[in-house]
Write a protein that binds this DNA or RNA. Sequence first.
DNA 1: ATAGCCGTTGGGAGCGCTCCCATTTGTTGG
DNA 2: CCAACAAATGGGAGCGCTCCCAACGGCTAT
Lengths: 385, 385
Amino acid sequence: MIATENLPRQAGTTLTLEEIARLADVSRSTVSRVINDDPNVRPATRERIWQIIKAHDYYPNPAARALAERRSRVIGLVIPQALNAIFADPYFPSLIQSCAAACDERGYYLMLSLVLRQSDDTFRWLIRARHMDGLIVASALTEDVFVTRLLDERFPFVLIGRRSERPDIPTIDADNEHGAYLAAQHLVQLGYTRIATITGPLNMVAALDRRDGFLCGLQAMGIETPAAYIQEGDWSEWSARQGMERLLQATPRPEAVFVASDNMALGALKAIQAAGLRTPEDIAVVGFDDIPAAATTDPPLTTVHQPIEQLGHLAAATLIDLLEMAPASADGAHAQHIVLPTELIVRMSCGQALRPSATQRAAARNLSDEGGVKYRSLISAALTG
Amino acid sequence: MIATENLPRQAGTTLTLEEIARLADVSRSTVSRVINDDPNVRPATRERIWQIIKAHDYYPNPAARALAERRSRVIGLVIPQALNAIFADPYFPSLIQSCAAACDERGYYLMLSLVLRQSDDTFRWLIRARHMDGLIVASALTEDVFVTRLLDERFPFVLIGRRSERPDIPTIDADNEHGAYLAAQHLVQLGYTRIATITGPLNMVAALDRRDGFLCGLQAMGIETPAAYIQEGDWSEWSARQGMERLLQATPRPEAVFVASDNMALGALKAIQAAGLRTPEDIAVVGFDDIPAAATTDPPLTTVHQPIEQLGHLAAATLIDLLEMAPASADGAHAQHIVLPTELIVRMSCGQALRPSATQRAAARNLSDEGGVKYRSLISAALTG
DNA sequence: ATAGCCGTTGGGAGCGCTCCCATTTGTTGG
DNA sequence: CCAACAAATGGGAGCGCTCCCAACGGCTAT
């Protein structure tokens, strides 16, 4: 017998459902059932059809599926900001990567939508074209017309990195406020009283949250913050360097500074060094993010860890859940609001050499997966609660 | 008259071609012609139909189009590597961003394919499913089964960041070899004779190119390189730090080091500092990439600039050109091989304080767009040549 | 006036799936 | 042994486009 169906397939050729059906001597419908895991197929038939599908390396045409099913299994990741400086931070790359991984797991595709020009057209195109089933919006801006538009159009989306003011918008965020609060508390406990901060750009939610959490922490410990001790940066190293230079000229000079991102903390450290001062002896520094570079600065940077990977993963998973829910329940007004815990990682830049136990623990959590497990349990608590 | 067609459209509803046709009192075909810029439509009719399309915010259904046209206008960016450490470098983020921008310009979508598990399945799925019209493969590995597979399947793709050994594979790359050559030449001209290098992982093409270009440059200037002066890193800061520590123990100690990436150069600088030595007085350092951080290290890092943005942009543009060419000519054996020039940026880390003119020029090129223009003309030369 | 032609327009067929309903087959109880 | 039902299967009708070919008008050339 000549096994024609086992010959190497023609390069660049793809079979159709119908052709597979003919080879298996069944109908289109039955093959479709096998592919979509419909239980109403006799096991023997199912097995035979799978063999043929594999032998011919058949994949259903995504466009045809999308047309018939009215969904594309594509979700978009929207980063609607001026992007020039964005990629200096490892935040977005990590986010992209983790979203992609989560999509992969669920059989979805991830499409990138770096909204370069905030034009009306771009939004329309993104939403109305319906190439994507839903969007992950990494919008950190406090005011964003895009969100309003999505709501108007009833387009499915989740918001990432941003508290939501509305109960009907699903939101995934790290607990920036609490992380910053912890940083404040830590500095006060170490005995510092003149404590300053370099914030992110204050039109972004994360920057506000971190500033507020920090000031709130100081206040709770009975520390006042003069206006001169609050400098606004823009996440860039350079802006923080300049902010730090201004802080160094303040009288009295602050003893400690909370910098709203590790990337900016790098700039702050350089400004301190350039001024001939030392960290932490002359001025203590605490960062935020726990980027890899934070562990290798001189001195190693005390910082607040935020679980970026889990943020992305959870955002994608939540969106896909939303999409696969019955439309009726998807309309429901009670969307999920997930807040992932942040954690203070104590290293050397805050003058904490005295407490080896804390430092060791910080080192350990960079190696082990312990942190992940902890988050996961907290997340599930949030989901069921 | 009640202008029903000017009422706000129903949320979440999308019209079809047919419905637009009915509103305009023409046929399906005519509307399709308008959308696809077919010249055979009377100007008056065309204008009237456009009005209606805009008034209703109509966009053609991408799935239906893809099914009928047999192409999706989606291209994929494949990054087939262990991704854990990848995003420490700003290389990939810049690449992603520039590819996305180029796609945007041409009306294409960019789909991200971070190939996490190098399984056979993933490749099959990527190629055979034909969700994408073509791929940009950012494969820096010297050996890559994926490329072979793409060729077998006659799947359109361009290779990025890699010399191609085959004339039939379109390739976009920066001139790593020449950049490294320039670095070597520069160090020798400054009077150094004991010159070492920390390479990238040698299973990657870019790492090999930079090493070879560098050694070739030294050789051309009559300098020998002992084996102990060549340390292999893995692009991570940490690996370079360790490599540098080994170099510092070599006897005689090298006077200058070429580090194959700026990110690694950061680690090297730290190792030098930790050993109580100074840059460039005790040991000069030259990096590669010209990442933003290179300008703010202490001392500012002399490095080789590579035009990452243009790499991504050109890769996407080349692929799209390829896809839109007539299939006959696309088969042609003469694919484009574009090599973008690299440029030495002289700062302070190589002991070059004596030549202010060069330093000024380096600073200028970070601010102005001058560099971009120069590349562009070189590129077009490459294209027409 | 009539054939011939070009600039326009309309409608059928089909892209490769899913979904629904009708039909066939297999299984059980009276 | 046949009705009654469930399990398994087949085929029609779309999904919303593009592409092709036929048809239509108005025009010039004969």
